[in-house]
Nucleic acid binder design. Sequence first.
DNA 1: ACCTGAACACCGTTCAAGT
DNA 2: ACCTGAACACCGTTCAAGT
Lengths: 222, 222
Amino acid sequence: MSTPSSPARGRPARLNQARTVRTALDLLNESGLDALTMRRLADAMGVQAGALYRYFATKQDLLTAMAEHMVGGVADATGPAGDDDWSEEVARLARALRTALLAHRDGARVYAGTHSTGPNTLGFADGLIGVLRAAGFSDGEAARALYTVSHFTVGHTLEEQAALRPEDGGPANAGVLREAVVEAGTYPHLAATLPVLTSTDFTAHFEFGLRLLLDGLRAVRR
Amino acid sequence: MSTPSSPARGRPARLNQARTVRTALDLLNESGLDALTMRRLADAMGVQAGALYRYFATKQDLLTAMAEHMVGGVADATGPAGDDDWSEEVARLARALRTALLAHRDGARVYAGTHSTGPNTLGFADGLIGVLRAAGFSDGEAARALYTVSHFTVGHTLEEQAALRPEDGGPANAGVLREAVVEAGTYPHLAATLPVLTSTDFTAHFEFGLRLLLDGLRAVRR
DNA sequence: ACCTGAACACCGTTCAAGT
DNA sequence: ACCTGAACACCGTTCAAGT
């Protein structure tokens, strides 16, 4: 974090961290992660690429700030009055994370490639662990359940967004898989389940996995 | 797949797909994914970078072949006589996938970034779905369970390997998280569970998540 | 204090030309 | 048929110098 010193002497800054992150997220939505370069971002802000390094020490730092911004509000995905049972609260948080990642092109890829310790990321983690601790899970169970839910959610959304990209995995992916399975003729179980495997109802896939995790947590709790 | 035509006329080839993939995996282990460039790989093979494009149309194709090679043998991770119950078979397959990804530096990152339709990847998928179908799960349940198990396993291993890298997430990560949580003073649940959250017993984390999924599958099956 | 201009050390990929 | 050499169109990052 290379925040320029506070007293506003000299020229008024044309750049700042917040505006840079917002512009970067706009550019991400328009062009995708592969096209998000420091030069193009600088261009979009009417500045030279080197100038960005006054606000972010590395591109990785910028991506981390973008990831943190993307999950803003996810931690607030708690029950209206908190009278929901714990499994519905966990489901709400997981769904909110997926939705937040889906809200930006390549959102899951950006999130998976960074490790924010900002308030949005930590707030989500604290909230999820808090729900489970309140429900009687041990510290170890609650912490590990956070990891399981997070890894599943990010892993799922990574695939979901990859399947939407034209280059790799797009509408083509289903065809490629079908072709490979049929051509080989040696994968009876893949052949039998192809309609489900190539379904684009990603919400159904996500909800199935989420249900497994919640049922698993119920079983663990005895 | 740009396999050069079969009849061996002209010069004997110094390059081929199999040797290139093996050398690339060696280089990956030595230097990591970020240092795996077409130029460095060509160098390691005593050739110019452009020559690689006779065997792989793009770097992405090379990475896909590497991913496919990495998970060789994972599909064979089935019971010694097949007399195990289905949940132990699924566990075996999931553990074998994690182990295969861990066997190469940045293995999960390579795997997550590609979509192989080779026999190792499809064999794993077919095997896992087959175990579940034989156990009485519906086609839809079996196919979706494959996705859930895969996404969790890859997501987990992605984090596990990120935590082992020095630059981002290494031994430093635990410290960074602790610092952020303590400094803010507003994350009681993270503070309480910090010892578990920063534990480097990744096998325990993985086994917990796997157990949730298997218990969830048992519940789904009624 | 903030940004420009220009450079450094690279990338993935293409393709005429050599052997 | 297989590979070289050289180029094209980029990258992230640094840093003296301007204002």
